[in-house]
Amino acid sequence: MAEDDPLLRSREGAVLRATFNRPARRNALNGALFGALEDLIADCAADRSIRAVVLAGAGGHFCAGLDLTELAEGEAALARNRRMGAILAGLSGLPQVVVAAVEGAAHAGGLGLACAADLVFAAADARFAAPETRRGLVAAQILPWIARRTGRSEAARLVLQAHVVDAAEAARIGLVHGVAPDAKALSALVGAVLRDVQQGAPEALAETKALLAALGPVVPDGYAEAGAQAFARCAAGSEAAEGIAAFRAKRLPVWAS
């Protein structure tokens, strides 16, 4: 499967499948994938013939988060983090039902993308983590979406302990709605959910999503910009330089050794 298109789309009736397509990088988010996600959101918002959107990843992984080979500093880091916040809000705000089908890694930004979906299902091999602090960074834009999914207490543990959570634990804390034993069973589970969803009237589903959003904002006023600023500060600091170097060298950073 070629990686020249970072986001593969396929249409199955009223269902649009969007597959992150950077398998050699575990579908890590780079500039091209950011742009493809922005285009996806705009296209889905304009096409009400789409009833549901399924997010998945190629090559056995969902999304490993930001591609650290493209980590920027200063204004570039600020802009990238602002884009991430807008993508998460855009996915959540779509009139369609958004379903995440997770295999393998859903880390950092990948975890955020899963949490921004309306429904999340995982294969037994799925692994979830918010490892930013171990890299000298902060889980800025994804934090409100994790908190929406799991509640603030479990979100605090995920972003502070920064450990890897398996699929069974993810189900226990409410991070995912269901777990399937393997990829084939996950596909069948998602298919059954999509059939249920399409029993609902399109406008009624869209209005229901709007009512859920009206229960209270996921991201408080001012938070997105504060998060972007915090991420940019950390990305430019010595801790990020050491944390990312340690990650690439597969060693502990100095503060953990």
Rank of each mutant, 00 (worst) to 15 (best):
Q161M: 11
L215T: 07
V54L: 05
A46W: 03
P202S: 14
A155T: 04
E225A: 12
R233N: 14
G90P: 00
R157C: 12
A167T: 02
R233V: 07
A32E: 03
R80V: 06
T133I: 08
A232V: 01
A139T: 02
L8W: 05
D166E: 04
L160K: 08
V193Y: 11
N27I: 01
E73A: 15
L40F: 04
A86Y: 00
R127P: 01
C234V: 06
Q141C: 09
G59S: 04
R80A: 15
E154C: 02
A204L: 11
G85K: 08
A256T: 00
A168D: 13
R80H: 08
A89F: 06
V54W: 03
I244F: 07
S153V: 15
R9N: 08
D67K: 03
L55G: 06
R11L: 09
E154M: 04
I173V: 06
E70P: 15
R251L: 06
A185V: 00
D125A: 13
P253R: 05
L205K: 01
R51K: 10
Q161G: 06
A236C: 11
F20A: 07
H107L: 14
E12F: 14
L66A: 13
A241V: 13
A185R: 05
L29K: 01
S10G: 10
Y223T: 00
A214P: 00
L215R: 09
R9Q: 13
S238V: 03
Q96A: 14
A167S: 13
R26D: 07
V54F: 02
G65P: 04
A236S: 15
L91K: 09
A56Y: 00
A129M: 06
I173F: 04
R157Q: 07
A52H: 03
A201V: 06
S153H: 15
F231K: 12
S187I: 00
Q229A: 15
R25C: 08
A168P: 05
T133K: 12
A86K: 07
L71M: 15
D221S: 13
W145P: 14
L55C: 04
L33T: 04
A188V: 00
Q199F: 01
F247N: 05
R152G: 10
A213E: 04
D39G: 12
G57W: 10
T150Q: 13
G59I: 04
E132R: 02
F62N: 05
A228G: 14
R135N: 12
D4I: 10
A2K: 11
A183P: 02
A24K: 09
A171I: 01
T208C: 11
A240K: 12
A170Y: 08
L194A: 05
P131D: 00
L33P: 05
V197A: 08
A130Q: 00
A105W: 12
G222H: 09
